[in-house]
Design a protein around this nucleic acid. Sequence first.
DNA 1: GCTATTTGACCGGCG
DNA 2: CCGCCGGTCAAATAG
Length: 333
Amino acid sequence: MMDDDEGGEDEESDEIVDDDDDGEGEVGEEKRRQVRVLAPIEAKLLGSKSETLASNSSSLQFSENDLSSYFATSSHLLSEVPVDYALLRPLESPNFKDQVGKSHQQALASVMTEAAQAQLQNQVQSPGYPTSSELSPTSVTQSISSGPSPMLLDQKLSPLASTNTAFISKVEQQNSSNRKSISVMPVVKIPSTDGYNWRKYGQKQVKSPQGSRSYYRCTYSDCHAKKIECCDHSNHVIDVISKGQHNHDPPRRINCTRESKLALPAVPDTTARSVRMLNDSDPSTSSRELIQEAPVLPETKRQNSSGSDGTAEIGIKEEHVDEPESKRRQVTL
DNA sequence: GCTATTTGACCGGCG
DNA sequence: CCGCCGGTCAAATAG
């Protein structure tokens, strides 16, 4: 898929930021333009990704000045600024204060959550953006922590899989063509969070928990493991149901150049997700009340603002289904 | 050309 | 028997 994860950071970042508005804003054109204004900054920020953003004060300072000047001219766009930019710029900076004044800070605060949501998606969808494992976790997490839930961040950062890259480009197409059915794919694809590679083979609008379901199966040749992502109306993944078991180890894609960049190492991302084991034969576990949240990030319920974003905790069920795949029409006609 | 995703259609289960 | 619904297939599409 998206093979240019190494080169196309700048371009993609545009799309990425634009990409996240389809979730909420539909601002489209205008937003895209606004994003372009920020492109240079973004390039710088992304350019310094190899160093730790937080610790590299020089580059940060640079960005800071840049941001300030940009901010002075386009402060009204702040709501569109991904939270990372806003937060990377110390609010205490007198320079910054001078230009924007207090009211902007207040506006910033209110806007922060929105921008944070956008930024989160932005991060996860940017192939060039350092993942939580590449980048000093604190730098990212800290910059975000004042906004939405770190859990959300983790959720969104972790699943950097090949599918995400596809999502970036596809979403734009979907935006432009105003698709009728599913507005966008779920913001987060989980494929690699559990270390396995998943291929999506279907998506369905469902009613029970109103939203959509995405159906994945393990790409491993003989593995029949499947999983279903349940998304709410706003395409936020609210539940992940695993069916079947892998008959292989999670692929360690260390040597795989492309995927190792896109996907995190095969470490189960249980910090962010609630994990639910669901036996197929155990219907008692089929309801969402059974979600066990991993209390790794004790941030209240992290709903308030980010909750509006549908930051529903994702439950991962696991259905041990040894169901024979020989159900129906497996024989192609 | 290959692989992954999207999406409408199809199929079976269930009430 | 019929309609609804969820799961899957497969052609079309995209990168």
